[in-house]
Design a protein around this nucleic acid. Structure first.
Length: 505
RNA sequence: GGUGACGUGACCGAGCGGCUAGGUAGAGGUCUGCAAAACCUCCUACGGCGGUUCGAAUCCGCCCGUCACCUCCA
């Protein structure tokens, strides 16, 4: 079976076929780095981390691009038109880039904790002003944008009329411009400069107090809301690449505008063949969102009981929790759900620890006769094949995880019952253990999080050492000394008692 | 108002017309110095009302309820 993905553009699942095999280009809309990331911000990166891992597992060469937005988006409710980064910078008396760097560092650290491999390219909007200006010029050259007072706007109605065939404005989110005109609010600053309320800014003129500004053919200003992703994805992945991802809340207007910019530039493409959108994380049934204050930051979640939860939850538990649901379903966070995820995750890790034991060759039968393993092997092979069915079906990690538990039950039975072990061949079992390990660690990206405290284990060992010494059981004493020395630890018998130090050898 | 989701057993969560989802919790059992883990068995389901069909959690209609987007947002 082959990988199928749900494409928002077509509203259907289709087998995934690379535009230019063997390379697969994947772009994920990254964070705006002006504040702490919350749990909701983690879902997309985790989902697309699994996607890129799985594509690589399938043999594709992936170029995974995830941007950092460090050119602040405008605050919707700020009458000054101040952007988020500038606002955060002013509040903390810092350079905007200092704010961006700080939160970008924290974001990367959090993503690493969550087991997300770093993207291959992590472009920053501020480093691609030239490309963005170039894109605006292309759109102007095509007659689909106009300048007013140093700002440039995309002409949505004109674009929509001209692109009847290539795809009207609203093709991604399934909206018509008529509907949108009926429901438009006109509260945004600079609205009066637009020819149509649907038009969106490609370039904004910077007011004198605006700190983040760059020179352009239209004067000093800063790029529009949606421009960076179009410019940077094209630079690093080409005018038409494979997969563009992001949260469902980015579908409109962000991704819709990206497509319009791409179609309206010299690219004339939908930017990506496949558009994928992960659903939202909710708390108490309501979407997690910075602006409403309804969120749990990753920092808090990882280290303390927060947001009504009974305890902190480790990054791997959180990752497992997210993957236990399908990415297009909403996920509600609750203490009960996280508790269940914690136990399930540990069960899976115990399975990982069981594998080496299973990989030992089967003991030969007492009578020397070869065992009949046909039935046992068939069952094992079926359980193993089932592991990938879910992932192939639009990255249904929930189903693959269910299959893992089914295989794990079999593993546990084999590990405790010699008769059952004899009923399967080494080859079939090895294939199964290899698949389990590959799915858990390589594709789902779940790793063991040791919970034991090394210092406490050491203290326990030193207790046994002291007892053995008191008993003059020097054979035990020597064993403990030697074992700890292998770990780089030396035991020191001092007048004050037993102590330890790092071996300096 | 427009667009789009969703409502599954105590909790979470798969399911895309017939065939065990899975995890957690609960009950009983095997094992066990105690305990844990593991294994076996069991227990609560498909919001409501109609319709299509030999057969529906799964398709259609209506109703009730929840949510998201239409403004920055993963």
């Amino acid at each position: 079976m082959a990988l199928s993905l749900y494409n928002t553009l077509t509203r259907a699942k289709a087998p995934f076929v690379p535009v230019q095999p063997p390379v697969v280009g994947v772009y994920l809309c990254g964070p705006t780095v002006y504040s702490e990331a919350h749990l909701g911000n983690a879902r997309g990166p985790v989902v697309f981390d699994v996607l890129t891992r799985y594509l690589r597992h399938l043999g594709h060469t992936v170029r995974y691009v995830r941007n950092i937005t460090d050119v602040g988006h405008l605050e919707s409710d700020a009458d000054t038109g101040e952007d988020k980064l500038a606002k955060a910078a002013r509040a903390q008396r810092l350079e905007p880039m200092q704010v961006a760097q700080h939160f970008a560092n924290r974001y990367r650290a959090h993503m690493a904790q969550l087991g997300c491999l770093p993207p291959d390219i992590e472009p920053q909007a501020s480093g691609h002003i030239t490309e963005q200006i170039g894109l605006v010029e292309e759109i102007i050259a095509n007659g689909l944008a106009y300048e007013v007072n140093g700002s440039v706007y995309f002409d949505v109605p004109k674009y929509d009329a001209e692109h009847d065939k290539a795809g009207r404005y609203g093709k991604l989110s399934n909206r018509s411009i008529e509907d949108q005109l009926a429901g438009t609010r006109d509260t945004l600053a600079g609205q009066d400069e637009k020819r149509s309320p649907l038009d969106f800014a490609l370039w904004k003129n910077a007011s004198p107090e605006h700190i983040m500004r760059w020179p352009s053919p239209w004067g000093e200003g800063f790029p529009g809301w949606h421009l960076e992703c179009s410019a940077m994805s094209r630079k690093y992945l080409g005018a038409e690449f494979d997969i563009h991802g992001g949260g469902l809340d980015l579908m409109f207007p962000h991704h819709e505008c990206e497509i319009a910019q791409s179609q309206g530039s010299h690219s004339h493409t939908d930017e990506a063949r496949v558009w994928m959108h992960n659903n939202m994380i909710t708390v108490g049934g309501a979407k997690m969102s910075k602006s409403t204050g309804n969120f749990i930051t990753l920092t808090n979640l990882f280290v303390e009981a927060t947001g009504g939860l009974s305890q902190a939850y480790s990054p791997m538990v959180v990752r497992f929790f997210l993957l236990q649901a399908h990415y297009r379903s909403p996920v509600d966070v609750s203490d009960d759900a996280l508790q269940a995820a914690r136990k399930g995750y540990r069960k899976l890790m115990n399975g990982l620890r069981l594998l080496p034991k299973l990989e030992a060759p089967a003991a030969p039968a007492a009578d020397g006769a070869p065992a009949d393993t046909a039935a046992g092997d068939a069952e094992l092979t079926k359980l193993t094949a089932d592991l990938w069915v879910g992932l192939d079906d639009d990255l249904n990690t929930a189903r693959s995880i269910a299959a893992l538990f089914n295989l794990l039950r079999k593993f546990n039975a084999l590990a405790t019952a010699p008769a059952a072990r004899a009923a399967v061949s080494d080859a079939a079992l090895h294939a199964a253990t290899a698949a389990y390990r590959a799915l858990v660690t390589d594709v789902l990206g779940l790793r063991d999080e040791p919970r034991a405290n090394a210092e406490e284990l050491l203290a326990l060992t030193l207790g046994f050492y002291s007892e053995a010494k008191a008993d003059k059981a020097y054979d035990k004493v020597d064993v403990i000394r030697a074992a700890l020395k292998d770990q780089g630890i030396v035991i020191k018998d001092t007048k004050a008692g037993v102590e330890w130090a790092y071996s300096e050898e």
